[in-house]
Deep mutational scan, measured.
Amino acid sequence: MGFKLLSKLLVYLTASIMAIASPLAFSVDSSGEYPTVSEIPVGEVRLYQIADGVWSHIATQSFDGAVYPSNGLIVRDGDELLLIDTAWGAKNTAALLAEIEKQIGLPVTRAVSTHFHDDRVGGVDVLRAAGVATYASPSTRRLAEVEGNEIPTHSLEGLSSSGDAVRFGPVELFYPGAAHSTDNLIVYVPSASVLYGGCAIYELSRTSAGNVADADLAEWPTSIERIQQHYPEAQFVIPGHGLPGGLDLLKHTTNVVKAHTNRSVVE
């Protein structure tokens, strides 16, 4: 069995187990497998329904001669939608809004960016022009300005110390501490036991640490421990890039980060 097929099978099995364990909360999309990078042309966006009122959005972007996937989250909030992270750029984010209108038909009224990198804030200006209120932590807003990236308009308070959590509509926002970046936030959907790890969490097929220019490698494993301790009931975990899975993604990420750190020390 090929690795790609095995990865998709694991996603399907995880979703099936969740649907059985929580039949009222989960209505997993039966329309197909989780979209992969090879299936999404740059400039297009796919939506994948995880649970009743919960979707991931998947886009792709060219970077350094390669094409990478990027995940975000959409959560229903009454007759409105909360968006977590842009679709990595203005063109993708405009396509995301169009796809949401086509498939869901509810307005996106608020959006949260989970850290300051372009795959999370690139497209904020498109959201703002569409009347979406954009939010991020003060740290993310400051770092985005320093980096020359787009800056969300509103500040999220109460997320300055490791372990801080605040309720934001249908989700809980959690600051686990520094990891992929010093400002990275985690998003949890309690009604569906869905954990969105953003770039602080890796997919299972990833074996290298990737972009760690703004990471705190020493603190990252401790931050992941905080996530595990705060959300032990999480059933569906979405990484910032690639295929979702279960809580095993947290341990896998820790292993990859520690291996990278150990290699760096040896070198």
Results as ranks from 00 to 15, higher is better:
M1V: 04
M1Y: 03
G2C: 04
G2T: 09
G2P: 05
L5I: 15
L6C: 07
L6H: 11
S7Y: 04
S7I: 15
K8A: 07
L9W: 09
L9N: 05
L10N: 04
V11R: 07
V11P: 09
V11E: 04
V11S: 07
Y12I: 04
L13S: 07
L13H: 05
T14I: 09
T14N: 08
A15C: 12
S16T: 09
S16P: 05
S16L: 09
M18E: 04
A19G: 09
I20D: 04
S22M: 06
P23T: 05
A25K: 13
A25V: 09
F26H: 04
F26Q: 12
S27N: 04
V28A: 12
V28S: 13
V28D: 11
D29F: 12
D29Y: 11
D29L: 10
D29I: 13
S30G: 08
S30P: 05
S30H: 15
S31D: 04
S31K: 10
S31P: 10
G32E: 07
G32T: 12
G32C: 09
E33I: 08
E33K: 07
Y34Q: 13
Y34W: 10
P35Y: 07
T36M: 14
V37S: 10
V37T: 08
S38P: 05
S38T: 10
E39W: 07
I40C: 11
P41K: 10
V42E: 13
V42K: 13
E44N: 08
V45R: 02
V45W: 02
V45L: 08
Y48P: 06
Y48D: 09
I50Q: 06
I50R: 03
I50F: 15
D52M: 08
D52P: 05
G53D: 05
V54I: 06
V54T: 10
V54P: 01
W55D: 00
W55R: 01
W55I: 04
S56A: 07
S56P: 05
H57W: 01
H57V: 06
I58E: 05
I58G: 03
A59Q: 15
T60E: 07
T60L: 07
S62G: 07
S62D: 06
F63Q: 09
G65T: 04
G65R: 07
V67L: 06
V67M: 04
V67F: 09
V67D: 08
Y68M: 09
P69R: 07
P69W: 05
P69T: 07
S70D: 02
S70P: 03
S70Q: 03
L73N: 00
L73S: 02
L73P: 03
L73C: 01
L73K: 00
I74H: 00
R76Q: 05
R76F: 06
D77I: 07
D77Y: 05
G78L: 09
G78Y: 12
E80L: 15
L81M: 11
L81P: 02
L82Q: 12
L83S: 03
L83K: 01
I84M: 07
I84N: 00
D85K: 00
A87V: 01
A87R: 00
W88K: 00
A90G: 13
K91A: 13
K91F: 10
K91V: 15
N92D: 03
A94H: 15
A95H: 15
A95N: 10
L97C: 04
L97Y: 04
L97E: 03
A98D: 10
A98S: 09
E99V: 13
I100L: 14
K102Y: 15
K102F: 03
K102G: 12
Q103D: 15
I104T: 11
G105L: 12
G105H: 13
G105P: 09
L106G: 14
L106T: 14
L106Y: 15
P107E: 11
V108I: 14
V108M: 11
V108Y: 03
V112F: 04
V112T: 04
S113Q: 15
S113V: 14
T114I: 00
H115M: 00
H115V: 00
F116K: 04
H117L: 00
H117E: 00
H117I: 00
D118C: 08
D118F: 15
D118E: 08
D119S: 00
D119W: 00
D119C: 00
D119P: 00
D119M: 00
D119Y: 00
R120A: 15
R120D: 05
R120W: 01
V121R: 03
V121N: 01
V121G: 00
G122M: 14
G122S: 06
G123L: 03
G123S: 02
V124F: 02
L127W: 02
R128W: 11
A129S: 12
A129M: 11
A129R: 07
A130E: 07
A130S: 09
A130H: 14
V132L: 13
A133R: 09
T134C: 14
Y135G: 01
Y135N: 06
S137P: 05
S137Q: 14
P138E: 14
P138L: 13
P138I: 07
S139H: 15
T140H: 02
T140C: 03
L143M: 06
E145S: 11
V146C: 13
E147A: 12
G148A: 11
N149C: 11
E150I: 04
E150Q: 13
E150V: 06
I151A: 08
P152C: 03
P152A: 14
H154V: 09
H154T: 07
S155W: 06
E157S: 13
E157A: 06
G158I: 15
G158L: 13
S160R: 13
S161L: 12
S161H: 05
S161A: 14
S161R: 14
S162L: 14
D164I: 15
D164K: 08
D164A: 14
A165P: 13
A165G: 12
A165D: 15
V166F: 15
V166Q: 10
R167S: 06
F168L: 11
G169Q: 03
P170H: 07
P170L: 14
P170Q: 15
V171F: 14
L173K: 00
Y175T: 03
Y175C: 02
Y175H: 05
P176L: 02
P176W: 00
P176M: 13
G177A: 02
G177E: 01
A178E: 10
A179K: 02
A179W: 03
S181L: 01
T182F: 15
T182Q: 14
D183H: 02
D183A: 00
N184V: 01
N184T: 02
L185F: 04
L185D: 01
I186A: 09
I186H: 03
I186Q: 00
V187N: 03
V187E: 01
P190N: 04
P190W: 08
S191N: 06
A192K: 14
A192W: 07
A192R: 07
A192E: 12
V194A: 12
L195S: 00
L195A: 01
Y196E: 00
Y196K: 01
G197I: 01
G197S: 03
C199L: 01
I201Q: 01
I201Y: 00
L204V: 12
S205T: 05
S205M: 14
S205K: 10
S205H: 07
T207C: 06
T207L: 12
S208P: 14
S208K: 11
A209T: 06
V212I: 06
V212N: 12
D214I: 11
D214K: 11
A215R: 11
D216T: 10
D216G: 11
D216W: 11
L217Y: 04
L217M: 13
A218W: 07
A218V: 11
A218Y: 09
A218Q: 07
W220R: 01
W220P: 00
P221M: 13
T222F: 12
T222R: 12
I224W: 01
I224D: 00
R226L: 05
R226A: 08
I227V: 09
Q228E: 13
Q229V: 08
H230T: 09
H230N: 14
P232N: 11
P232W: 11
A234T: 11
Q235M: 08
F236M: 11
F236R: 07
V237N: 02
V237F: 14
I238A: 02
G240A: 03
G242D: 03
L243Q: 15
L243E: 08
P244Y: 14
G245I: 01
G245V: 01
G246C: 09
L247D: 05
L247K: 14
D248S: 12
L249A: 02
L249D: 01
L249S: 02
L249N: 15
L249V: 10
L250K: 01
L250Y: 05
L250C: 13
K251N: 08
K251H: 04
H252E: 13
T253W: 00
T253F: 00
N255C: 06
N255T: 11
V256I: 06
V257Q: 10
V257W: 04
V257E: 01
H260P: 13
H260S: 06
N262I: 08
R263P: 05
R263L: 07
S264N: 09
S264R: 12
S264C: 04
V266S: 12
E267I: 13
